[in-house]
Design a binder for these strands. Sequence first.
DNA 1: CTGTTAGCGCATTCAG
DNA 2: CTGAATGCGCTAACAG
Lengths: 351, 351
Amino acid sequence: MTTASAPKRRRATGRVTLQDVALAAGVSPITASRALRGERSVAADLVERVTTAVAQLGYVPDPAARALASARSNQVVVLIPLLSNTLFVDLLDAAQRTLLAAGYQSLIGVTHYRADEEEALLRTYLMNRPAGLLVTGFDHTEAAHALIHGSGVPCVHVMENRGAAPGAADAEDGGEPYSVGFSQQAAGHAMTAELLRRGYRRIAFAAAQLDPRTLQRAQGYRAALGAAHDPRLEFMDAAPSSFALGAKLLERVMREAPDVDAIFFNNDDLAQGALLQALRLGLRVPERIAVVGFNDLTGGDQMLPPLSTVRTPRGEIGLHAARMLVALMRGEDVPERRVDLGFELVMRSSC
Amino acid sequence: MTTASAPKRRRATGRVTLQDVALAAGVSPITASRALRGERSVAADLVERVTTAVAQLGYVPDPAARALASARSNQVVVLIPLLSNTLFVDLLDAAQRTLLAAGYQSLIGVTHYRADEEEALLRTYLMNRPAGLLVTGFDHTEAAHALIHGSGVPCVHVMENRGAAPGAADAEDGGEPYSVGFSQQAAGHAMTAELLRRGYRRIAFAAAQLDPRTLQRAQGYRAALGAAHDPRLEFMDAAPSSFALGAKLLERVMREAPDVDAIFFNNDDLAQGALLQALRLGLRVPERIAVVGFNDLTGGDQMLPPLSTVRTPRGEIGLHAARMLVALMRGEDVPERRVDLGFELVMRSSC
DNA sequence: CTGTTAGCGCATTCAG
DNA sequence: CTGAATGCGCTAACAG
């Protein structure tokens, strides 16, 4: 065989490489590489020859080789607290779609609302040299924060907007973090104010999970009530949100504070569970007691009575955050670091 | 500076490499590599020296380099139809957890019940040279099937067990595919039989989405009814499952077949929506009409009346499938290719 | 059981 | 605008 002495004969793996493409196109490998990645410094006719060769040979780039050579993968790490809250699933779905369309894959991590799990996930996923990071909220361990920063990977926070750091500007790294969300506190305030406007006076706040965003909503609730705020009307349960817990919380409120005329649940599944429990107990809603929820999850409009709630734009947040991250990953300038997408009161007939 | 002429001075990236570890441990890089990966052909004391060096230097392996050198990544592709059905989220959650514990990362793809999207996702994700594949069901395009096979990547199918190929054994590739699930048809049959046993005679089947597994359940429903089967009592709607659609389907059934005494919904959200609609319409359940669902999703036990349904073991399926896949990826022999995890009738009071 | 040699497939220098 | 040389960090294959 003559191939035995050929200096650079085709490798045995059978894989079509960039080199094969370059050979077929009559250019150097690096030109083929540049053409494929859309670097503009390649003549149009060469680009076309490369494209043709790619199609003919069925060339498929190797992400591992790319990542090794460039020290960056095409993967984006997305960290959310839970998969069992449709809120985050909606967020994730939108973000993943957008990222995929822009050529990025998502590595999804579920933190279970635990800062230590988040840190562990970061440590694991950061090994992949991701191109970007999408994380929920701002409550990270010191170490997690350091990991994110130290990695130099662009990061967008979602679901809340951290108040602009007061006083000493966080100037070490160019300042304010990138975030897309809305003011949880303002949302809590707005719904409470609406209840007050409608004449409710003894308004309870019932919450589960007790994550930072829930507590921010509680702050809004308190601020809206002002002097009328009664701490005995806050019913907090650290257990995860569910229909069953909503039912339980309703009973607890009625037992411990029978003069309550409205309950603001911090998530729709609690509120929906409470509505069902009210039906079971024969409590009339909203006559005897008004019930409102948060997030406008699926099913609220089907309840008896239909649930009043706060619609939160998690899909839009996922989309917008992904777009922002893509811009950052491409090295584009993103002047607007904090995007507030707002919320909307959806008043149906449960209050 | 003296370093200028040193033949192999430390690279400028600042990254701690295997070579550094090897140097510190006084072994060759390949021995360090073997020690890290737990190959048993390394002396215990050397392993310890390597481990120590790793800890001291804070060495972190580079997945990209590993993947490039070994032509296999540590990622597993998981393909599910939807993220908005908690059924698949439960499956995913369990699988992801198990895989992560075994050292594998998950690349999640959402097919939206579309074979062409599945194919596109496979094409994209297969570029990463995944270590394994976890896919929902058996309905793939020819091309997708070829991609899976051609890649040589171990694959486990979940949620159903394909009937053993009758006649000509699918011997080309060693036969039967690996799968973990249960018989959708048997489940459909069992619930229908239970309704018959309880005296219901005009039993409707109401379904959404109309994916293959739904149709298998319909087969079971028909088989259980035998000669009593009336095609006019099948109400199929290709739209996605939801509370609202369940409400709509209930109305349609009552309008088009008022003599129906029970409705078997192919998913719990439909059934729950129907239950709420019945409440709204003043239809007594189960006296006027019995309602049963499928999957035992969250909330069913909170309905009025509590929903009878079929509990499906998606969490266990995710767990078991992940374990099976891990075994395959490790090159272990897995003799039991088809695992049937069964199902359970959960009879509450809606029938 | 350990080490040597030689790439894996690509993109980043730097020249032209 | 294009190309040549080089190495990213690791492991497969073979030797000892």
